[in-house]
Computed example of a mutant assay.
Amino acid sequence: MLYPILPIFLTQTLHASGSVVGLVDGIAQATQNIVQGFSGWLSDRLQKRKPIALVGYFLAAIAKPLIGLATAWPMVLGARFGDRLGAGFRSAPRAALVASSVAEEHRGKAFGLEGIGDNLGAFLGPLLAVLLLVSLNVDIRWIFYLALIPGLLAFLMVLLVREQQLAVSAKATLDVNLRRFPKAYWTYLLVTALFGIGNSSNAFLILQTKDIGASLEATILIYAGFNLVAALISYPAGLLSDRFGRKGVLLASFTIFLIAYVGFAVIRNIYLIGLLFAFYGLYQGIFRSVGKAFASDFVPQQLRASSIGWYSSTVGLLELMASLVAGQLWDRVSHEAVFVYGAIFAVVGCVGLLALIPWQTNRHRASTAS
């Protein structure tokens, strides 16, 4: 409900600049991902997933209405920080629950199934926002207030989850966990970082869509279509990565990102931009499910939450850097420069993935290592 209207709320209601949009969303997404490193370690140390996830869901739910109360962009930044802090706190333990709930050979499909749910919510939420804004003439601030309801419902649903006790115990200190990660895992994080340098917030794609002439309603609907495509591809992508290996499927997502960013730099037709945004959803669905599954392939079971957490931290840190750069490019150079910048590092990421990551990983051996 919130994501497609947040950059428009910042720029049109609060009259913030593109740099502020990059700062707010960059810090928010970085917070979500960086906190996963800590929550993943804490989950591994305590051998508890569900209680930590519950805390995160509750914090994210109660922070969302605070955005609607904002009268200046720093207030949005504070509320959005709290929202994404909760989201980050829940994500790694939730991912570890997913990874441990299925057999090794089905892990990609499991993350794909999780991706379907997450992206379907991101598809239905914007449709609900359009219904409220257009059909019922609800003020834009009330969208943030009403977001409390699905947030609390998600919290209640997690209460129904049954957590299995792990058969192994994790080490108690963060430093030991970091040293236990194999070299191949750190190489994968390096490739992720190379690609992520240019992977700025999707808020800039939303602003570009609005900037070329799309109405608020059309922009939200286009974003909903993007998430629908991401939802539909998530499970097939996970299935393909289980069957044929993660590297090729992940490389396809990098390539889709590259094509989409080049398109956003040169296309000015609203209909073509809408199609391109939907095409970009393929990247979102593949990267989200396969990227995390790949990160968990390199480590033993007792470090799985930490591996996904530090992977997500890497993604978040680089997205913050990319969004700050993109904000400056948006305000000081041109809107097109944001997407040229992203495309360049997509090429770098593709080269790194091809050169540094083997086509086959030892994920079956990693799962049974002590």
Results as ranks from 00 to 15, higher is better:
4 P>K: 02
4 P>A: 00
5 I>H: 01
8 I>A: 13
8 I>Q: 14
20 V>A: 03
22 G>F: 06
23 L>A: 08
23 L>K: 03
25 D>L: 13
26 G>S: 02
36 Q>G: 14
37 G>W: 07
38 F>W: 14
38 F>G: 12
41 W>P: 10
41 W>H: 15
46 L>C: 04
50 K>Q: 04
52 I>L: 15
54 L>H: 03
61 A>Q: 04
64 K>F: 00
74 P>N: 06
74 P>A: 06
75 M>K: 00
75 M>R: 03
82 G>Y: 01
89 F>S: 01
90 R>D: 00
96 A>M: 13
97 L>N: 06
101 S>W: 01
101 S>M: 09
102 V>T: 05
106 H>S: 14
107 R>M: 04
119 N>F: 00
120 L>S: 05
121 G>N: 08
121 G>Y: 06
130 V>F: 03
132 L>W: 06
134 V>W: 11
140 I>Q: 06
141 R>P: 05
156 L>M: 12
157 M>C: 10
159 L>T: 08
159 L>Y: 08
162 R>M: 12
162 R>E: 14
163 E>A: 09
166 L>R: 15
168 V>T: 15
173 T>D: 13
181 F>S: 11
184 A>K: 13
186 W>H: 10
190 L>P: 05
200 S>P: 00
202 N>M: 13
207 L>T: 04
210 K>G: 06
214 A>V: 08
217 E>N: 02
219 T>G: 02
220 I>F: 05
220 I>W: 04
225 G>L: 03
228 L>F: 04
229 V>P: 01
229 V>K: 00
230 A>S: 15
231 A>Y: 02
234 S>K: 00
237 A>G: 01
240 L>Q: 13
245 G>A: 09
246 R>D: 04
249 V>N: 09
254 F>Y: 14
255 T>Y: 10
262 V>M: 07
263 G>D: 02
267 I>Y: 07
268 R>G: 10
273 I>A: 12
274 G>M: 04
277 F>K: 07
284 Q>V: 12
285 G>I: 00
293 A>K: 05
293 A>F: 11
301 Q>I: 11
304 R>W: 06
311 Y>H: 13
313 S>W: 11
316 G>K: 12
319 E>S: 10
322 A>M: 05
326 A>R: 08
326 A>E: 08
328 Q>R: 06
332 R>I: 00
333 V>I: 08
334 S>E: 02
339 F>T: 02
350 C>I: 11
351 V>Y: 04
353 L>N: 03
354 L>A: 07
355 A>V: 05
356 L>C: 01
359 W>Y: 07
360 Q>F: 06
363 R>Q: 09
364 H>D: 11
368 T>F: 11
369 A>T: 07
